[in-house]
């Protein structure tokens, strides 16, 4: 990774990566109702960073990510655990889904539940794990 690839790749990556990240969030959020979810969202986000690493090098990719990938793994698993433990507050067993409906304008309302939080945990773990491995290999 010492010699950086062509300027075309770097420019393309600069535009594509944010779009991919945005798409990954979209996949994550719609996952409960349409195909998608934490796993595929996380993989898309990882691909975005993988491309970025190709184009701009390991150090830049790390800087852009801000947090270290293992931290993301820990955060993801913790978030999943927390989302499951929230059920204890409602005197339910671990990982029982809890839902609240937030009414928006008119008839529409947004349903929020602990399973969504759990999926975000999956999303973060997948990104963290993939990037940990990717960065380690890129270092070699």
């Amino acid at each position: 990774m010492t010699t950086l690839p062509s300027i075309i790749l770097r420019t393309a990556v600069r535009w594509i990566s944010p779009l991919l990240l945005l798409f990954s969030l979209f996949l994550l959020l719609r996952g409960h109702h349409e195909p998608g979810g934490g796993f595929s969202g996380g993989l898309i986000a990882s691909t975005a960073f993988a491309l970025f690493t190709f184009g701009h090098g390991l150090e830049t990719a790390r800087r852009i990510l801000r947090v270290s990938p293992p931290t993301l793994v820990v955060a993801g698993i913790t978030l999943a655990l927390v989302s499951g433990s929230l059920a204890f507050l409602a005197h339910k067993t671990f990982l029982t889904g809890l839902w609240i409906a937030i009414p928006l304008v008119g008839d529409t309302r947004v349903e929020l539940g602990t399973p969504l939080l759990f999926d975000v945990g999956v999303y973060l773990t997948v990104i963290g794990a993939t990037l940990t491995m990717l960065f380690e290999f890129a270092k070699e």
């Binding site: 409960h32 934490g38 698993i77 999943a80 990982l95 839902w99 349903e111 999956v122």
Partner: peptide, 24 residues
């Protein structure tokens, strides 16, 4: 479980404990 994608609902709700193990 308030979800239309059954596969995702299984992953994050019905069998979330398995998924927790898997991400671990």
């Amino acid at each position: 479980a308030h979800g239309r994608n059954v596969v995702n609902v299984i992953l994050v709700d019905f069998r979330a404990l398995d998924t927790l193990g898997e991400i671990t």
